[in-house]
Design a protein around this nucleic acid. Structure first.
Length: 424
RNA sequence: GGAGAGCUGGCUGAGCGGUCGAAAGCGGCGGUCUUGAAAACCGUUGAAGGAAAACCUUCCGGGGGUUCGAAUCCCUCGCUCUCCGCCA
């Protein structure tokens, strides 16, 4: 959520900033509502003040043993007036809140302008795409061997966009997860978390998935209306919701491995084959909760942490800055890591690292006490994939394939694979 | 699933329907003392919104109600704890 004070005092500037994303803010409507709100609030508070004063004097008169009937008569008409005023105020505040919750974050000045993913800007590359002396296959072709990746069974069990992994492929998937978690906890200073895979609506509102993007989520039919998490960013970041974090404990650095569930509404026909776009996939996530003056530095660190995973796996990749039109709702700036897929002859997203500044923190009311001022201030929150496990599996399989269809195991994973050099 | 007890500021914990935003303690901050620190003593210290300011409003788990007036009474939901039952 944007600073409501800023929304009041710099509305035109906010609208101009949001326009960078292609978001149209109805300035006149907001201004009109805001004017009404102010008048109504002043009016309501005046009535509340009257009620409080008179009630107090009734109490005092009663304590002195005086007759309170005249005082009671005086206050009788106030109740209805106040009730009406309060209801009107609540309604208009709700309207304003609904608008505010639907506004995306303001982009950092360093984010390049652009309409869509075609205008994203490459920052750097690591590694050279490997030259094969044969036609490299796509992962689902390689996965057909020994039924390692079984999409047909998954479609029988559930439906489209699911997979059953078998034998060495299932183990490779698990090995990747373990390797990533161990790297982040042992080398990058993150604390591992195990978290719920279902969350309530408050949590999703906190990180920005609700109220705007409900159609992307799987909602459970239970009484509480829980949702399956679309990313562990939601439960992990919401740990600090409604809390005041001790400044001495900052930054908080968490990593968590969870399944992620996404409806993929609106992506019909995209990546229909293979593991790239599934309703259920696994991800090792990194989350940092920092002081405001340290979040940009933390973003660079986090991208580096994700890069370290790809480097250790020997997977060529590039880092890009998402342009204004492609940056997500909550983010002020996002770096994507795109890994080279020889089967597709393309770089494909495998990690996304974002600084949301105080956007999520304001929604969550997540604060720390600044030792310098003694005051509570909003924290900054960051999240990044470190990295998507399913896509990492795709990348390993395609990059480590050999002419005879065998798949070599990257050195760093062999300890997790019982020492095997090849999938078997 | 059944029975009971709770939910109050950064933390612990008091609080007859009426000067209660809330005692006390701890913690924090400032000071006295000390070469310095600790201890002791004194002072100060919740959050959010509005106002140039005096000051005003809201907040005692969430929501609703009763009342001139609710931390306090009622309803409801959530959560925590204890006991019983069931269970990987």
């Amino acid at each position: 959520m944007l600073d409501p004070k800023r929304l009041r005092t710099e509305l035109d500037e906010v609208a101009k900033q949001l326009a960078r994303r292609g978001f149209k803010l109805d300035v006149d409507a907001v201004r009109a509502l805001e004017g009404q709100r102010k008048a109504l609030q002043t009016h309501t508070e005046e009535l509340q003040n009257q009620r409080n004063l008179r009630s107090k004097s009734i109490g005092q008169a009663k304590a002195r043993g005086e007759d309170i009937a005249p005082l009671m008569a005086e206050v009788s008409s106030l109740g209805d007036q106040l009730k009406t005023a309060e209801q009107d105020l609540v309604k208009i505040q709700t309207d304003l809140e609904t608008i505010a919750l639907g506004l995306p974050n303001i982009l950092d000045a360093s984010v390049p302008d652009g309409a869509d993913e075609n205008q994203n800007v490459e920052v750097r590359r690591w590694g050279e795409p490997k030259q094969f002396d044969f036609e490299p296959k796509q992962h689902f072709e390689l996965g057909a061997n020994q039924d390692w990746m079984d999409f047909e069974s998954a479609s029988k069990l559930t439906g489209a966009r699911f997979v059953v992994l078998r034998a060495a492929m299932a183990r490779l998937h698990r090995a990747l997860t373990q390797f990533m978690l161990d790297t982040h906890t042992q080398q990058h200073g993150y604390t591992e978390l195990y978290v719920p895979y279902m969350v309530n609506a408050d949590s999703l509102r906190g990180t920005g998935q609700l109220p705007k993007f409900e159609e992307d989520l799987f909602k459970l039919n239970n009484e509480q209306g829980y949702y399956l998490i679309p990313t562990s960013e939601v439960p992990v970041t919401n740990l600090v919701r409604d809390t005041i974090v001790d400044a001495a404990n900052l930054p908080l650095k968490f990593t968590s491995h969870t399944p992620c569930f996404r409806s993929e509404a609106g992506s019909h026909g995209k990546d229909t084959r293979g593991l790239i776009r599934q309703h259920q996939f696994e991800k090792v996530e990194m989350v940092q909760i920092t002081r405001p003056d340290q979040s940009w530095q933390a973003l660079e660190e986090m991208v580096g942490n994700a890069e370290a995973i790809l480097q250790k796996l020997g997977l060529p990749y590039r880092v890009i800055t998402l342009c204004s039109g492609d940056t997500g709702f909550s983010a002020a700036k996002t770096y994507d890591l795109e890994v080279w897929l020889p089967g597709q002859q393309k770089y494909r997203e495998i990690s996304s690292c974002s600084n949301t500044l105080d956007f999520q923190a304001r929604r969550m009311v997540a604060r720390f006490r600044n030792p310098e001022t003694g005051k509570t201030e909003l924290l900054h929150t960051l999240n990044g994939s470190g990295v998507a496990v399913g896509r990492a599996l795709v990348a390993v399989v395609e990059n480590y394939q050999e002419a005879d269809g065998r798949i070599r195991v990257p050195e760093v994973l062999r300890n997790y694979m019982g020492g095997a050099a090849y999938l078997a």
